[in-house]
Design a protein around this nucleic acid. Structure first.
Lengths: 337, 337
DNA sequence: GATTAATATGTTATCGATAACTCTAAATTA
DNA sequence: TAATTTAGAGTTATCGATAACATATTAATC
């Protein structure tokens, strides 16, 4: 590998002079500058980022941890984060935790070892707390995305899950549904809790009883348990006329199960959910959903993170919390009873 | 930040001893080992990867460059690559080029600066050649995914695009279609060329004339040009009875355009394409597709890359080329004429 | 008990860059 | 002309780790 010493030698100057040319610092005569630049081109020099980071004590490297890279919500979010990072000259590293605490732990470890300048993280759940404490302890700035973690104050970008759930239920009730089930992520995830809460509130508001049997708590994850869903469906007699899915993955899994027992949406049962199923939302304008501004989650979160990094030890203006509004998009998956 | 020297001082040993404990090298008495380990825990020590990499001349960092992070084909591929990397103790950095040469160039630059140990890349197109030459010049091992680049020999994992296109056309012909259009990616991308080629061959085989007007060459990219598609559709009189889409994104765009003019699939026109639309393929068992083993692209590609890296200057067994078979999955988007 | 071998640990140089300081020669000022 | 700036470089130490060599114990052998 070509180093700045190789350049220096060939150009007949000192390494420091080369460094000055590279970084455009200090005073350099036009003559040496061009000479050094020519040699750099000739030898195909590329600065060693690690050596730089070591002395500069900054990597310009950021980390984004998402829980499901195959979920369009998170990939769209990732694009937002990427765009914002790029605009500020930072590189962005992605990690995919699969809603798995152990994988998350591995990535946290990697972040610390790499000395990343900051982290954007959609935590796997409340049990991510020790991971976040680890980051805090090592003074790695981070911003939470999509999910809060009780016991940890920090910047965070959330969706209005409670309101979203309320609107979904309201929409169903408006269409005459009264037996409404909820398939949800784990209670150890703040967004799932909020959605359950919103569901319950909306039921109460509409004088509908909350029936625990109508709620299935499973996983938001990429591979949720199909047999659990099957068993749950079997247990529901009579079948609800409508389902609310806590996220897009669950909506898909549920649709699959329903279809396998010959039930059509919306003819036989109605279905609504959080998040678009695909990033090309217009592709299949079928499911009535609460659409979240996935791109904005990433973009705004990244901006907050960069703010933190750049004002490092400076005045800490207190933790900021952005709640992005939930937008109900009514399509064709709900039948008017 | 806690360094190895802080540990050394507090434990009353030299830095080298600490290093030995960390890496489990050399001989250390059980007593000092436990003492050092305790101090490491107390201070919350995390090794500085950059300092290590600098002296070891390896980063254990790999790079995956994909052209569209919102495309489920690539995210599934990414999961495969990630799993394989993880199994071998490598970290994986993702980059998203958006089919954009300039973005790709930026990432190549980042790779070189970071001194990544290797790269897995789905090149933006034939014009990626200089980028690959850059990698080659700096001796960064790489494996091409999904697309070849003329003029550059390397390990590569491909899908059998030509055969896939043949099968799609055959399927349509078998259902009685004779006026079959193709909406495809840019000719500067090898897979698009192969698909066009397969399409032409299949037409010929079935005694159908190749009509240039029936082929639209646009972009595989995340944001393809809708107006181009609209104009093309307008120009097609009479409308073809069936369409082949060169990838999933194009299928979606086309569906959208068709729908906007009141055309239903498959009642009014038939549509088949490459790649599943969503990673939950079963979700919407609607489009007849050539399904590619996206996960395997990533997994096998990563294995080849690691092979290269580990046998570095050792015997180079020649370039390897893996062609993954194309599987036709017949669903409901083709109407029997 | 002296010599040798093995075990445990320390020292120094190095990876590739930059910060902080130093030096030299030319340019400016008194 | 002598004194002082200043432009344009060079030197040295440092970031945090590890390799290679050196050294000090302790244990084993004759």
């Amino acid at each position: 590998m070509v180093t700045i010493y190789d350049i220096a030698e060939k150009a007949g100057v000192s390494a420091m002079t080369v460094s000055r040319v590279i970084n455009n610092t200090g005073r350099i005569s036009e003559k040496t500058r061009t000479k050094v630049k020519r040699v750099m081109d000739e030898l195909g020099y590329v600065p060693n980022q690690m050596a730089r980071s070591l002395v500069l004590q900054e990597t310009r490297l950021l980390f984004l941890m998402i829980t499901d890279i195959t979920n369009p919500f998170y990939t769209t979010l990732a694009r937002g984060a990427e765009d914002a990072a790029k605009k500020h000259g930072y590189r962005l590293l992605f990690g995919n935790t699969d809603e798995d605490l152990e994988k998350e732990n591995d990535y946290i470890d990697a972040v610390l070892k790499t000395r990343a300048d900051g982290v954007l993280i959609a935590p796997a759940g409340d049990a991510s707390l020790p991971h976040l404490e680890m980051l805090r302890r090592h003074r790695v700035p981070f911003v939470l995305l999509d999910r809060e973690v009780p016991g940890m104050d920090s910047d965070v970008v959330l969706g209005d899950s409670k309101e979203g759930a309320r609107q979904l239920v309201k929409q169903l009730v408006g269409c005459g549904h009264r037996r409404i089930a909820l398939i949800n992520g784990s209670r150890t995830i703040s967004s799932a809790r909020e959605r359950l809460e919103g569901y319950r509130e909306a039921l109460k508001l509409n004088d509908l009883a909350y029936d625990e049997a109508l709620v299935l708590e499973t996983s938001f994850g990429p591979r949720s348990d199909l047999t659990g869903i099957e068993a749950w469906l079997d247990s529901l007699r009579p079948l609800p006329t409508a389902f609310v899915a806590g996220n897009n993955v669950l909506a898909v899994e549920l649709m699959r199960s329903l279809r396998s027992r010959g039930l059509r949406v919306p003819e036989d049962v109605s279905l609504v959910c959080f998040d678009e199923l695909v990033s090309y939302a217009e592709m299949d304008p079928f499911l009535t959903v609460i659409s979240q501004q996935a791109y904005q989650f990433g973009y705004l979160g990244m901006q907050m993170l960069l703010d933190r990094i750049q004002s490092r030890d400076g005045q800490v203006p207190g933790w900021r919390k952005i709640v992005l509004p939930a937008e109900l998009i009514v399509r064709r998956s709900v039948r008017q009873l």
